[in-house]
């Protein structure tokens, strides 16, 4: 980063000096690093003092469109991936507690209990599963870092751009499961991929053709850390393997 910043600097200093030297007189001002002063030295703006330039600037601004966001009347155009509020898809939650433990300010509260599922087959083993009793996020503590969303292995937490949940009492900012689930409706679809970008990992994995079976390499000794796989009895041993695949 710093290398990139350092490199253009000498170029920027050099180029104006070369460009402006034919009119004469300007280079020293440009080197002084005062762009307005450099411009003021030549042409009409040298005669018109800066105060007139100031008047012109404000007058020009008055004729242009304003930047005011009329928020309560006009909804803001939020950027994609806006971090408004964290929504919970509670069917996906396994109460694994990863989010609660990774949360830097411990603002996620999870209660759960274990439930025994009867065996599906006769004589089978009963299974246990976690049932989520409580999932709450205290938005008076949340710092919107998004670590919980990142860390959730089961896609139960999502960013929603919804931001209008101010309360008059700070205690009312502790939102429970039903409220967090309501925000799921406002979660936008993931933004489209950039043109030319690689496909997501799961798409490439699904689209990949079935891996051909490895040829038996009898002449090469198996690596020390690699367990040797017993050769499978497979008639399709003929297709040649590309050399790159062999290295990987």
């Amino acid at each position: 980063m710093t290398g990139n910043l350092d490199r253009p600097d000498p170029d920027d200093l050099e180029r104006p000096v070369v460009d402006l030297s034919p009119p004469g007189g300007a280079p020293s001002k440009v080197k002084g690093g005062e762009p307005d002063g450099g411009r003021g030295g030549s042409g009409l703006s040298g005669i018109l003092p800066g105060i007139v330039q100031g008047l012109a600037t404000t007058a020009r601004t008055m004729t242009r469109h304003t930047h005011t966001a009329e928020y309560p009347d006009v909804r803001p155009q939020l950027p994609p991936r806006s971090r408004g509020v964290i929504a919970l898809l509670d069917e996906n939650c396994t109460s694994c507690m990863l989010c609660a433990r990774e949360c830097p300010d411990w603002c996620i509260y999870i209660d759960s209990h274990k439930e025994e599922l009867p065996p599906t087959t006769e004589g089978g083993r009963a299974r246990q599963r976690n049932v989520l009793d409580r999932f709450a996020i205290d938005y008076s503590l949340c710092m919107y870092c998004g670590i919980c969303v990142e860390v959730c292995p089961f896609d139960a937490l999502f960013w929603s751009p919804e931001f209008e949940y101010a309360e008059l009492d700070i205690h009312d900012l502790l939102h429970e499961k039903p409220r967090l689930s309501q925000w799921m409706a406002t979660v936008p679809a993931p933004p489209a991929l950039d043109p030319g970008s690689a496909d997501p990992a799961e798409v490439t994995a699904a689209a990949k053709p079935a891996r051909p079976a490895r040829p038996v390499r009898g002449e090469r000794a198996p690596g020390p850390g690699r367990p040797s796989r017993p050769p499978r009895a497979d008639p399709q041993q003929t297709p040649p393997v590309p050399p790159a695949d062999g290295d990987v």
């Binding site: 404000t58 601004t61 008055m62 242009r64 304003t66 930047h67």
Partner: peptide
């Protein structure tokens, strides 16, 4: 209003 618009704002609305 004039000051607001000269600063790219709307002023009281």
């Amino acid at each position: 209003k004039v000051m607001a618009h000269m600063q790219g704002r709307l002023g009281p609305m």
